[in-house]
């Protein structure tokens, strides 16, 4: 049980990071961006690319399996992911925004997702890869609880970023502008907020978070071209459960999905784990269509 909770929190923290970006784009850009999860894949692979390209030494930090090179690579990967997000917005979503219906944007995002995934497949190949071939052995910290040092770092990084995003949205003018656009784009524009600027920053924040989430996922699991695709459902479930546009909601939604998935295995056969995000999603949509945390303070 303890182990399941710890695993759930770890997975949940990665879901939370991904779901923040997703909920921001859904709230501010007003469409379900299916390509968001692919940005996680992109970020994760860009970090791998940087590591391989410059053949950085993989000197581990203390008990961790990675060191400064990966941290540096993550920063570069976040930058490259932001560039990708902006390029996609410039050439795909930007061209469509305001001219076509909501569904067209959704389909366009599907296309973008396929494009990114297959591009990665083309460059890096389809097999599973790892940042390091080192295997970390979990340390028993309590009876029935084993934790890897990497997991602690992944969790801490995710939490720190979540707090940073929250402070950014609450305490900066830009954050205020983003929340305003999320609330009502026409009203925000009337008040002199530049929609283009907010959209750009939404991509920057969402893209960078996605990249970091992707790297963290790669550290704790592995890299595969389908990495993002398989995270799509949990991410959407988290964002919707939290209430679209609600950042704190998305974070809590991410943890909720992660925990339920992990704990459910104690009750139901592991083979049915995949169905859990679906069930959560269905239950939320049935009982609280606006999301469990809708109406609380947060990005909305």
């Amino acid at each position: 049980m303890l182990q399941a909770l710890a695993d759930g929190l770890l997975t949940g923290s990665i879901y939370a990071l991904g779901a923040i970006g997703l909920t921001l784009t859904m709230g501010i850009l007003r469409f379900a961006n299916f390509a968001h999860a692919e940005m996680m894949t992109w970020g994760a692979y860009m970090a791998l690319g940087v590591l391989t390209l410059f053949s950085l030494p993989t000197a581990p930090l203390g008990p961790l399996t990675f060191g400064w090179p990966l941290i540096l690579a993550t920063v570069i990967a976040a930058g490259l992911t932001v560039v990708l997000a902006l390029i996609v917005d410039r050439f795909v979503f930007g061209k469509l925004r305001g001219k076509v219906g909501h569904l067209t944007l959704v389909f366009a995002s599907f296309g973008v997702a396929l494009l990114i995934r297959n591009l990665i497949n083309l460059i890096f190949g389809g097999r599973a890869q790892y940042y390091t071939s080192e295997l970390q052995i979990a340390v028993p910290v309590a009876p029935g609880l084993r934790i890897m040092p990497d997991q602690v770092v992944v969790f801490a990084t995710a939490i720190a970023l979540v707090i940073a995003v929250h402070l950014f949205l609450q305490n900066t003018r830009l954050g205020l502008a983003m929340r305003a656009v999320s609330e009502s784009p026409p009203l925000a524009q009337v008040n002199g907020i530049s929609l283009a600027r907010v959209v750009r920053w939404t991509w920057i924040v969402g893209g960078a978070l996605a990249a970091v989430a992707g790297v963290l996922y790669g550290v704790s699991v592995q890299l595969r071209p389908e990495l993002g695709f398989h995270l799509l459902l949990p991410l959407f479930a988290a964002a919707i459960a939290g209430g679209v546009g609600n950042v704190i909601g998305a974070v809590l939604g991410g943890f909720l999905i992660g925990l339920i998935e992990s704990v459910s295995v104690l009750v139901i056969p592991a083979g049915y784990k995949l169905a859990i995000p679906f069930l959560v999603l269905l239950a939320v949509l049935y009982f609280r269509p606006t999301g469990i945390f809708a109406g609380t303070t947060g990005g909305k």
């Binding site: 997975t11 699991v221 990495l227 398989h230 992990s262 056969p269 784990k273």
Partner: peptide
């Protein structure tokens, strides 16, 4: 006896079980 579904990114839950 723990079954797993193919093509999952992580099998931590299955392994823990």
């Amino acid at each position: 006896m723990v079954p797993y579904n193919q093509e999952q990114a992580s099998y931590r839950a299955e392994v823990s079980q």
